[in-house]
Amino acid sequence: MSINLQKVIIAVCAAATVSAGFAARTEGAKLHRFSTTIEKERPQLNEETKRLIASYRRDPSEANRSALRKQVGINYDKVLDRKKAKLEELKRTARHASKIQEMQEIVDEMVQNREARIDQSMRRFSDPRFRPGARYADGGYLPVLGASWNVSIAYTPVTNEDYAQFLKATGRKAPKDWDNGAMPAGKGRHPVVNVSYDDASAYCQWLSLQDRKAVYRLPTEEEWEFAAGHMPKDADFNCGERNGTSPVDAHAATSGACGAIDMWGNCWEWTSSSVEVSKAVAHGKTVMAVKGGSWRSPRTSCRTERKGEGRESSFAFSDVGFRVVREG
C-alpha cells in the first residue's frame, strides 16, 4: 500500500461519522454535571474496514462500495449494541430517571437515523477531496467532505473581533450586550452572540462583497452536520460548566470531522435550514435550525444528530452565534 493511500485512509477514518469524528483524546473532558452516560474511550477503525476503504479508493466499483457499506453498518451496529447494553445497565442501577432518559434518547436517535448516518460516512468516502492535507485550512476554511465539492467551512465561529470589523465597515447596529457599540471587554475571541439570523446573513453578504470570487453564506443543517461529524465521546467543550461563552479556541483539542473547532457547546449556530413548527408556535414567524448546543445546554443537546432545535430568525439570543461557509 502506498504512503499516500495510507494517509488518505487515516483522513477517512478521522472523518467517518461512525468512528466518532476527529478529536484528540482528552482525559479531563468536562462532562455535563447531569450526565454519566458518556463513554470516554474512542473506538478504533478495525483492519478489515481499513482494507475495504483502500480497495474502494483504488477501485470505486459498486461491488467495493457495497462491501464497504456493509462493513460500516457492522461497525455502526456494534456501537449501537454497546449503547443498548448501557441503557439496560442504567435501568438496573440509575438512581435518577433523567439518566435513563438521556441514554434512551441516544439509542432512539441511533436506531432512527441508522441508514442516514451510514450514508453520510459513505458520502465522505467518495468525496474527491479526500487526499493528504485535505483537512488543513485554506484561508481559515476547511473542506466539508460529503457536501458539494466547492463548499468549505470556517475553522471557528465568527468572533466578536470579526464582527466588530463588519460593524465598522457597515454601520450596522451592535449586539445588545455590547456597551455603546464596543465589544465586551476581554471577549474579542469569544463567539459573537445576540445576533439574529438576519444579522448573520448580512455579515455573510458583506464577506462576499469583499472577496468577489466566492459566495459566503450560512451552512445548511446538512452541511453543518457533515462538517461536525458524530460528536466524539471524549469531546471537551463548554456546556453546563460556566455562565457564558468562552474563547473559540479554549477547547481546540476537540475538533469536528472536517477539522473545525468549537462545533459543540459555547453557542448554538444559525443554519439556513428552516424548522417545521406548528402555526401556534410560529405565529407566522420564520424559524431557522440551530446546531451544536451552547454553554447552557445539557451535553446530549449538543450532539450533532439533534434535530428540531430552532429560533425565530428576526430575534437575537444570548446563546446563539454563527459560522460561515464559503462556496467557490
Score class of each variant (00 low, 15 high):
Met1Gln: 13
Asn4Glu: 15
Asn4Asp: 15
Leu5Tyr: 06
Gln6Ser: 14
Thr26Ala: 03
Ala29Leu: 06
Lys30Arg: 12
His32Trp: 04
Thr36Val: 10
Ile38Phe: 04
Lys40Thr: 05
Glu41Thr: 02
Arg42Tyr: 04
Glu47Thr: 13
Lys50Glu: 02
Arg51Leu: 12
Asp59Arg: 14
Ser61Gly: 14
Ala63Arg: 15
Asn64Lys: 11
Ser66His: 03
Arg69Ile: 12
Gly73Gln: 05
Gly73Cys: 09
Ile74Gly: 03
Val79Trp: 09
Val79Leu: 09
Asp81Glu: 11
Asp81Gln: 10
Glu89Gly: 03
Arg92Phe: 08
Ala94Ile: 05
His96Gln: 07
Ala97Lys: 12
Lys99Asn: 06
Ile100Cys: 06
Glu102Pro: 07
Asp108Arg: 05
Met110Tyr: 01
Val111His: 10
Glu115Tyr: 01
Ile118Thr: 07
Ser121Lys: 06
Met122Thr: 04
Arg135Leu: 13
Asp138Ser: 15
Tyr141Thr: 07
Leu145Pro: 08
Asn150Arg: 14
Ile153Lys: 04
Thr156Gln: 09
Glu161Arg: 10
Asp162Glu: 00
Ala164Pro: 05
Gln165Gly: 08
Phe166Trp: 00
Thr170Asp: 09
Lys173Ala: 15
Lys176Cys: 10
Asp177Ile: 12
Met183His: 02
Val193Trp: 03
Asn194Ser: 13
Val195Asp: 09
Ser196Cys: 13
Tyr197Trp: 15
Asp198Gly: 12
Cys204Lys: 05
Gln205Pro: 00
Leu207Lys: 03
Leu207Thr: 10
Gln210Gly: 08
Asp211Ile: 15
Val215Ser: 08
Arg217Asn: 10
Pro219Glu: 09
Thr220Lys: 11
Ala228Ser: 07
Ala260Pro: 04
Asp262Pro: 05
Trp264His: 01
Trp268Arg: 05
Thr271Cys: 08
Ser272Gln: 11
Glu276Leu: 14
Ala289Trp: 05
Val290Pro: 02
Ser297Gly: 12
Pro298His: 00
Thr304His: 08
Gly308Pro: 03
Ser313Leu: 13
Val320Asn: 06
Gly328Tyr: 09
